[in-house]
Each structure stands twice: as structure tokens, then as C-alpha cells.
């Protein structure tokens, strides 16, 4: 999956919509209409703009963002893998297709201390569950995985969603 380089520009209306929705859609009967009211836009325009940003990939998804920790997913393991460069795309697609993986990215190695080039975020209700999932990945990969590690999160020190301030300063989250 490649990111196209020719992304359409976001105009002032798109930016206003991003600012208006960055803390979430209203939980009301007509959320898009309510957002439009605040911005002087018709509900149709709000829906079309959001749909367009979704279609071109500026918005990845629209949905609920659950608090996984509160839902019982207290173990959050970032599994990191050392995969031969020629195999990493194939392996990445394989891992990315697993339903317990929320993110799967290729990232640069930092040799010699950091040989890992593939990251897969694995969530579970306990470390045992995360470890079983990681063992599943290891079995799937066989010899393609030269080394791997699980980095559990100990504490969240700061977590915020997208913050896009006025004045063109743009920030977003991953």
C-alpha cells in the first residue's frame, strides 16, 4: 500500500471541519448538521467534504475511538521484528492481516543497537494473551524473523488526539 504523492490541497473549509471535529462528532440526532451550523455550512457540504477527505485518504477512518485500557485491554505490546529487507513487504502484509494487530509499519533500523525494521502493535487483556499472539506471529514467520522483542508500555505520559491550531500550524497524531 503506497501513499499517493499527489494529494489534493486542504482548503479553508476542510481545515475548519478538521478543527471542529478533532475532539469528536456530537452525540446528537444530526451531528453533521450541528457541525455545519457552527461553521455556516449546510449539512450536505459537511458530509461531502468529510466523505472526500475519507476517499482521498486524509481521513483514515471515521468511527469510535474506544478507550482500550478501560475496556480491559491493559496489555499493549509493541512487537518489533528483524526481517530481511527483501522479505519485509511480504511479511508486513501477512502480519497486517491478523485481527489482533492494530498497526503494522516498516521503520528504519538503527544499527547496531536497534536491528528491528518491522513494528506490529498487539493488544490483549493480559501479557499472556499478547505473548500468545506474538508466538502466533513468530510461528507464521518461521525463519523470516531473525529476532524479535515485545516492548510493553509501562505508562502513558502524554496522549492527545489531533491538535490543529489556528494560524496554519498543523499537528496530528499517529
Amino acid at each position: 500500500m503506497n501513499i499517493p504523492d499527489d494529494l489534493p490541497e486542504l482548503d479553508g473549509i476542510d481545515q475548519a471541519l478538521i478543527r471542529a471535529t478533532q475532539t469528536g462528532l456530537p452525540i446528537s440526532s444530526t451531528p453533521y448538521s450541528d457541525i455545519g451550523l457552527g461553521l455556516g455550512l449546510s449539512p450536505d457540504v459537511v458530509e461531502q467534504r468529510i466523505q472526500r477527505m475519507l476517499d482521498v485518504g486524509i481521513i483514515r477512518r471515521i468511527g469510535i475511538i474506544p478507550n482500550h485500557y478501560k475496556l480491559g485491554y491493559q496489555a499493549n505490546g509493541m512487537s518489533v521484528w528483524d526481517i530481511e529487507d527483501q522479505l519485509v513487504d511480504q511479511v508486513g502484509e501477512q502480519i497486517g492481516a491478523l485481527d489482533f494487530v492494530s498497526h503494522c509499519y516498516r521503520r528504519p533500523r538503527h544499527l547496531p543497537e536497534w536491528p528491528f525494521n518491522l513494528f506490529a502493535m498487539v493488544h490483549g487483556t493480559s501479557r499472556d494473551v499478547v505473548e500468545a499472539h506474538v508466538a502466533e506471529i513468530r510461528d507464521l514467520l518461521g525463519d523470516a524473523a531473525r529476532d524479535h522483542r515485545i516492548l510493553y508500555s509501562r505508562r502513558i505520559l502524554k496522549k492527545t488526539g489531533l491538535r490543529w491550531h489556528k494560524g496554519g500550524e498543523r499537528k496530528c497524531c499517529d
Binding site: Q22, I27, R60, P66, K70, R170
Partner: peptide, 27 residues
Amino acid sequence: FKDLKAKGYLARIGATYATGRIGASTL
């Protein structure tokens, strides 16, 4: 949904924006 939100199970309902599409970022 309001109950989920009030009890903290729901962070928000909304869009997730693609990093790299707006601005620059890195882990």
C-alpha cells in the same frame, strides 16, 4: 453512546487523520 462516553469507555466518535498527509511526523 452518551453512557459509554460518560463512563470513559469511549474517547470520542470521529475521524482518525492520516499522519504524513497533513504536516510531517515521526515516531
